[in-house]
Design a protein around this nucleic acid. Sequence first.
DNA 1: CTTAGCGCTAAGCGCTCGCTTAGCGTGCAG
DNA 2: CTGCACGCTAAGCGAGCGCTTAGCGCTAAG
Lengths: 206, 206
Amino acid sequence: MTTTGLDGFSLLDETWRTVTPDAARRMLIAAAHAFAGKGYHATTTRDIASLAGMSPAAVYIHYRSKEELLFNISLVGHETSLALLSSIGGDGAVERLRNAVAGFAGWHAEFHTTARVVQYELGALSPEHHAEVAELRRQIEQRMRAYIADGVEEGVFDVPDLKGATLAVLSLCIDVARWYQPSGKRTPDEIGAMYADLVLRMVRPN
Amino acid sequence: MTTTGLDGFSLLDETWRTVTPDAARRMLIAAAHAFAGKGYHATTTRDIASLAGMSPAAVYIHYRSKEELLFNISLVGHETSLALLSSIGGDGAVERLRNAVAGFAGWHAEFHTTARVVQYELGALSPEHHAEVAELRRQIEQRMRAYIADGVEEGVFDVPDLKGATLAVLSLCIDVARWYQPSGKRTPDEIGAMYADLVLRMVRPN
DNA sequence: CTTAGCGCTAAGCGCTCGCTTAGCGTGCAG
DNA sequence: CTGCACGCTAAGCGAGCGCTTAGCGCTAAG
């Protein structure tokens, strides 16, 4: 038993594998959990430091400001989910959209801590940092739209409003981060599969 | 031209009609806009007071605390959206679900300011106040589930997972509050109609 | 005219915030 | 053994927070 409060979950999350040194990574993970739990503005730098098992001043050894911690979490989170969405395979547009929705929705459940910061703390970023993640968000939308458009071109989807449907599909997946609870009955994979089914029903012809 | 910053939008929003006296209503409206715009914790009581065109101390004439302002907004917002969802009419389960989704999603667009506070500031409520709105949220879920269940009983919907489908439909409507912008191309009514179509596609047989 | 009550403001209290500074302990090169 | 670089802590600064207090000006009853 230690005093950091991070033992249970930090090692299960591979998102931050590349962050070094170790103290900087622990600080990021602590910040992500604090931001996800009570929001960026309600979290103090003292909260973060004590979650990471260090003194309040230790935050500023590795990060210039509290906002820079947020930006790092938001950037890595956006990059991770974009990479996931970009690496979708499958035979035909139906299977690719199924895998895309299952993966993207499942990610928002499994990594709901990071996802909450990614989706609900955009407004706390500096204008420059916000612009940087906004570009990644544009790419995420393009990817999802392409998966739907492919099925329309193949003739296996019936979508009267491509932009609207893309918005709705992304919206559905993103909102998982809001309501998901690890103590709930459904696993992230089950949520992904269920959502993929619902989305395919939305776009199927007739 | 005045200095309150509330002239443009306050009179368009009928949600707060019943709140008296006038100064208390202006304070609520100012708080709702501030909370929606930058979040409860990032909003100061001085922000609220100056938006309402009064001194910082004036907040405490009508409300015991900043949290009580939040609770009032959240409570009225939940009651309003529950009342809307409860008053849905229509001929048959298909039309009733269409009207329910169009109304509920449309409300989250038209009253996105209130809706954002309702949906994204639950965590800032005191435990007692949170419990009070949680009961209203349970009723909202029950209403929406009933509209879907009716169609299953009538045999006009095919829904393998009623709880999951209800969750997804509510989630879709609620997330409108996150992405909606008045400057966007779609009106709240158009969003409601589009979402109703998408949901009916999700639950239709075959 | 007097005065009580009410809505509001000016001023400021105690506290906690993000962040800084001075300096400690450890490990390693010479 | 010496000395320096590095990661960290103890202490605390200035600012701004939520909220309180004392008292002002207006209204209206007696």
